[in-house]
Write a protein that binds this DNA or RNA. Structure first.
Lengths: 212, 212
DNA sequence: TTGAAAACTAACCACCCCTTCAGTTTCCGT
DNA sequence: ACGGAAACTGAAGGGGTGGTTAGTTTTCAA
């Protein structure tokens, strides 16, 4: 009887596995991710420490390593979470062309309302230029994806005749991303106050003939 | 006699001071600065270590702190040295206007030939967004200076009628700096090969009516 | 209510960091 | 050639890092 019970448990444990998380665990993980987002945005990945993340969320350092098995794992989770929104936003709205550009502008506007977003990407993108950096592949892929997406939009617009004459789609795509990154950096130094979204729109407007 | 001698020495030491450096010291310092330039360009300031600088130049870690009293002192020296060139270049060539823009393009071209330059500024500019960072003031001042300089040039050109109609000098200046910073970042990720100087020139050309 | 898994902590490890300092070697003016 | 300053080293101090582990508390299903 008992032996049979244990056997049943063994079998169940092999199939249904380990019992699952507690109710509040999901919230905890989210708290940790939010704190990590802040810390990485302020100090970057290498310089930001698990300890400060832990302090900020009211846990021990080992505690957060229970939820995310390593520091790089935590970074990955942060990036994945933040990617989710813009990616799903793009998935619904976008077909290549003027609408995609407007969507891009919209994403920029959204990021401006959560300044941590700008800090995080500015710092990590620079830090991630080193090939061994855990975020290197992420940003390489990101630039590839956005760049290709944008280029495709400009190509479509050229065929439609809405691309300003003489503008090369590849250059337009690169310059679009560059303007955003560069302006964000200036914005972080905060000396000169300016409307980031307006500046980006002005630049995009110089590339196309239809109103944005 | 002896007491008088000591007195004289005291007086001399007050005026002519300490004897001065050895012959090869200047070269040593230069070697250290070059190595530090490399290390900071690769890993940034916080992450780059004095030890790797020391190893690369064949000195002990304490040895390089004899020449530069602290790590931040070393960074300052690196920045000062690198600033020297472009600053003196600008001082000779520049009066605000189209010539200043051409000079700016020339500086970009120069930096492209020494890629470490691009790495260093991309990484440090992002790292330096934190207010307590030793390079923070440096970059704030740099953006201020270049931005004001550029804006002045665009204003002059507007009066000359060589600024493309509808272009606002402030936006033009910001976008000019942004394009460079942003493209440099893409260039560091190196996936897409492109001519950085050509892209910058194309952008500048979209702002003015005279050929660059 | 009980008992086992999940959640968490404290302590520790091994490593790297910048800086300081007491000595040692190298240079070089006299 | 000598003597003292400059140049440099090795070791140690004090601090912070990510990661591991043994043990404790909390949750929750049966």
């Amino acid at each position: 009887m008992r032996a049979l019970g244990v056997l049943t448990w063994r079998i169940m444990s092999d199939t249904t596995a380990t019992r699952g998380s507690y109710a509040k665990t999901a919230d905890r993980r989210r708290d940790i991710l939010d704190a990590a987002f802040e810390v990485f945005a302020e100090s970057g990945y290498t310089n930001g420490s698990l300890r400060t993340v832990a302090d900020r969320v009211g846990l021990s350092q080992a505690g957060i390593l229970f939820h995310f098995k390593s520091k790089t794992g935590l970074l990955q989770a942060v990036l994945d979470l933040r990617d989710e929104r813009s990616r799903e936003y793009f998935a619904t709205v976008t077909s290549p062309g003027i609408e995609a550009l407007r969507g891009f502008l919209e994403v920029v506007r959204m990021n401006c309302e959560e300044p941590g977003m700008i800090e995080l990407y500015a710092i990590l993108a620079a830090e991630g230029t080193a090939e061994e950096h855990p975020a290197h592949e992420y940003f390489r892929g990101r630039y590839d994806w956005i760049g290709a997406q944008a280029r495709q939009s400009f190509i479509v617009m050229r065929e439609e005749g809405t691309l300003r004459p003489g503008v090369e789609p590849g250059h337009a795509a690169r310059s679009m991303m560059a303007i955003v990154d560069g302006l964000q950096l200036q914005w972080l130094y905060g000396r000169t106050k300016f409307d980031l979204v307006a500046d980006v729109r002005t630049h995009l407007q110089s590339l196309v003939t239809v109103a944005l």
